[in-house]
Amino acid sequence: MSKPVTIIMIEDDEGHARLIERNIRRSGVNNEILPFTNGTDAVNYLFGSDGTGLNHKGEALLILLDLNLPDMTGIDILRRVKDNKYLKATPVVVLTTTDDSHEIKRCYELGCNVYITKPVNYESFANAIRQLGLFFSVIQVPAAAT
């Protein structure tokens, strides 16, 4: 992953956020990680004060998204990202506890790129995140609004 890619981590559980970050780092990814613990802050950052997403023009972003947020559902954020003309090419990785097949299907239909269920078993969890980190280190991310 080229250096300027910023990872936006939207995760309300700070423990989860810490574990995710730690394991991504362990896989050798050194990109900037911006954590958000609620949907509102994340939306404000993503779409800017004017709500258009223009402020990220030319930046390369990658979104790590939890579906269960205290103030909104991750699905809403996913939908808005994929509807936004600047952000729609941004890869979205849904990382959540839900393994409900309807939910998974819905996320992919809305344009999510990867859906990962957080395993309770920590070895699997750490493994999954590290592999995700490895994945991050090889994928190409487009700049917003090309």
Binding site: G15, H16, T97, K118, V120, N121, Y122, F125
Partner: peptide, 11 residues
């Protein structure tokens, strides 16, 4: 499940 992931993770 969510707190369980933390407990397990930090353990």
């Amino acid at each position: 499940r969510s707190p369980l992931v933390n407990i397990m993770g930090f353990t």
